[in-house]
Design a protein around this nucleic acid. Structure first.
Lengths: 338, 338
DNA sequence: GTCTGGCACTCGCGTGCGAAGAGTGCCAGA
DNA sequence: TCTGGCACTCTTCGCACGCGAGTGCCAGAC
């Protein structure tokens, strides 16, 4: 077990390193933080911390920098979440309130998050799977071709063109539309399958094939996770620390282009609060020198999607966590209102 | 006027510099291209080319590199468009054919273009203003709240929620939907305004306000240019030449995040063929050291949107132009089919 | 026991210098 | 008009050197 002072030393190292971006030595530490002890003592503590793997030195005769393990301890035990100041809160609210539709909400959220944290922001669109159905529309494009439009309570619209096994008449289609909506409107996606199960039976034999096809397409649309979209922004912020790691920026940019990777990244965080994944804790190799701070957000009390930022492991964790949490909260509010 | 041989020298310089990424000297030139003259002669030509501003030397005693003006001459007079090889064409076609909807088409196009050119790819969604209406759908969300869904021939879907001045009955709404569709379905956006002008007159007085509101929202949606969306990809390719210009990558990334800038960038090119804007020819400052190669594409014979790539001025112009042109052609085909 | 001051030691980094190499410009001759 | 040769310029690279930051350890003080 580490003594209280050693934890303080670790905290000081993290704070200084995040601020200066340079390895921090024992002398500088005692000057900047009044720990009440001499550099020599701090050196002993540092040696112990290094022994335990919390800090490391890039070269002999250089200062120490925190390891992933050190940041982890810092985040878990030594630092809280720094709340946003009232002016910042107002700014967030104002910025988000101007949004006109869902795309705009997401776009503004990304910009806002990128600006606040000065890092790369990722915002997932409100997920289909946890939302409710507002309306299902069926349009006849051709005798045996139907377009399915699904509108969710979060304002998201998904459309699919369906090739039917047999032509279907306008009357039958209208019938199907009406029955479908009376059953599923306002219901959660997860409940839909059981609600429409016996629907084909209500139709004439010749239409049943088409009805089944439409229904299965609807169900596909509902559960299909790979349709989950997200928006990213603030990639220019990567260049802020590129001078340290010019070789790092490439894999990060590559990872950011893989939506699958990002969705997995956000999806992994199961914690209801703010989740932090540091360095090698990220499964994806390209992100081994970055940290991901993410949190769920939702229109009701419930999370329907995630948002977060990606930045260097050397980041201002309390501030970033505060910003991410605050933005998530306000986005939730905006979604609930609309 | 430059002599034939001097143009050849310029062409050789551009080609070598693009290949090696290093300033090219007179000796290397004569070795790699059989110009039939000695290095000394080439030196004289180089001096002349420098005098005219087509090439420059980074330092005294270094080789020459092309200037923006030099690239311009190269693109206009010295190089053609390099057509794709048959295997490449097949690969393009195969890759694009798997697309399931418009988003997917655009996403695949971006990936493809980024891979082929190894540069940053930008694809604009097929523009609303030049497409035709496939279907207009009206959904009653609440007595005085209607959702308008517009489906275009390119598969794009736009939706708006409209607050009506007065409640409107389902019958009237169905009537409006039917009349609207019979008038505008299959028509070009630009024709729509005159086609629906007198529509309110066909309704009862109490519904006219609502009908007008719906119509004006529809017209807004049709003309609203700021809704133009685009997708970009391949930003990781920027790092390929970041070692030369670590300071360049940041403004480029910033510019790429400004959709407005990109739309303007693509919009500027009026030429029906492939357009190339080199270095300072780009209005946006951040893109002063990059070139943009763009072209229109469309489902019919007509261009409805643009696509292109952004890369260093030192790029393989013939190859890039060929790839951009080929991809545009195939995307057009895919859009026409679906 | 724990902390402190002192001291020797280790490296990384910046500087200056010299040699090497690439490339140019110019000139006289074919 | 082209060519070969020559002197000149500059950049780059390697290397030695000194400086400074920072460490580790030890003996002594509280």
């Amino acid at each position: 077990m580490l003594s209280e002072r050693r934890l303080q030393v670790l905290r000081a190292i993290v704070q200084d390193y995040v601020g200066t971006e340079e390895p921090v030595g024992s002398k500088a530490l005692t000057e900047r933080h009044n720990l009440g002890v001499s550099p020599a003592t701090v050196r002993n503590d540092m040696a112990a911390l290094e022994e335990e793997g919390y800090i490391a030195q890039p070269h002999t005769s250089a200062g120490r920098i925190p390891t992933d393990k050190g940041y982890r301890l810092f985040v878990d035990k030594l630092a809280g979440v720094k709340p946003m100041s009232p002016p910042e809160r107002r700014a967030i609210q104002n910025f988000l309130e101007g949004a006109v539709d869902l795309d705009d909400v997401v776009a503004r959220t990304v910009r806002l998050l990128a600006q606040l944290t000065r890092q790369v922001a990722i915002v997932q669109y409100p997920s289909l799977t946890r939302s409710t159905v507002r309306h299902v529309e069926l349009l006849s494009l051709a005798p045996a071709r139907v377009m399915l439009v699904l509108i969710t309570d979060t304002g998201r619209v998904e459309q699919r063109v369906i090739d039917c096994p047999a032509p279907i008449g306008e009357t039958s289609l209208a019938d199907l539309r009406a029955r479908l909506n009376s059953r599923v409107a306002g219901r959660r996606f997860t409940d839909v399958p059981s609600l429409v199960e016996d629907l084909p039976e209500a139709f004439e034999v010749e239409d049943r094939g088409t009805v089944s096809t439409v229904l299965s397409t609807l169900l596909e649309t509902l559960v299909e996770e790979n349709e989950e979209r997200l928006m990213i922004g603030g990639t220019a912020n990567l260049t802020r620390f590129a001078h340290d790691f010019p070789l790092t920026i490439r894999p990060v940019l590559e990872a950011l282009e893989e939506q699958v990777v990002l969705l997995k990244l956000l999806g992994e965080a199961k914690d209801p609060g703010v989740t932090v994944r540091i360095g090698h804790e990220n499964a994806h190799e390209g992100l081994n020198s970055t940290s991901v701070v993410s949190v769920g957000y939702g229109s009701g009390g419930e999370a329907v999607a995630k948002l977060g930022v990606v930045g260097p492991t050397r980041m201002d964790y309390p501030g970033t966590m505060g910003a991410v949490r605050a933005v998530a909260r306000y986005v939730g509010q905006i979604l609930a209102e609309s």
